[in-house]
Amino acid sequence: MAFINPRNKEVQVKIVYYGPGRGGKTTNLEHINSKFKERIRSEMVSIKTYGDRTLFFDFLPFEVGKIKGYDVRIQLYTVPGQVKYNATRRLVLKGVDGIVFVADSMTVQREKNLISLKGLQENLEAHNKNIFGVPLVLQYNKRDLKKRNIPILPFDVMEQDLNNRLKVASLGASAVTGENVLPTLKKIISATMSSLQDDLK
């Protein structure tokens, strides 16, 4: 749950980037960090292993100005995508307000996306949350690979696989080139803030 401070009129919102290992969650945050340098006062925190895989989480806080008279502080987190770190993913989801699911467009990763999305649903249930009730945006990452002749899943197939029942906003993106990284962020921030509307008075 977002923490709303009525005294100094500040709200802290937790947005988590979730998805299969090597899907590009950390790369999304790195891109945001490089684009928003002037708004980000602290360093991005990354707890990772030697091979640059996320071990615990990445953390990037920044301010987005005032909404309904409240200073809004967005805190972005990533989870570690590797299968063995499920307990850690569950911990990071504690108190989540909005989720970006970063799917890997590579054809060979199709099954991994499905497993990860199912894991998200289960992990939310452990926190008494329903995946259909949490603000969520799907990002189909690595669309740039098409140009390099690496087989990727057509957008429609990914929609069918992942968004058939959820019916949430979805975007094709490339975290390495930055394409649609900020639009993804904007979508999840606006979905999350509108879900908090009634609590901000």
């Binding site: 749950m1 977002a2 923490f3 401070n5 802290q12 937790k14 602290s42 360093e43 925190v45 989480f57 953390f59 806080p61 502080r73 805190q75 987190y77 504690k94 108190g95 989540v96």
Partner: peptide, 22 residues
């Protein structure tokens, strides 16, 4: 969840408390 609900310091503390909270 890592949100700061209240804080106090002695006036000479420059730590990044938001990251510390997370």
């Amino acid at each position: 969840a890592g949100n700061i609900m209240a804080r106090q310091d002695n006036g000479h503390c420059e730590h990044d408390v938001y990251s510390l909270a997370a």
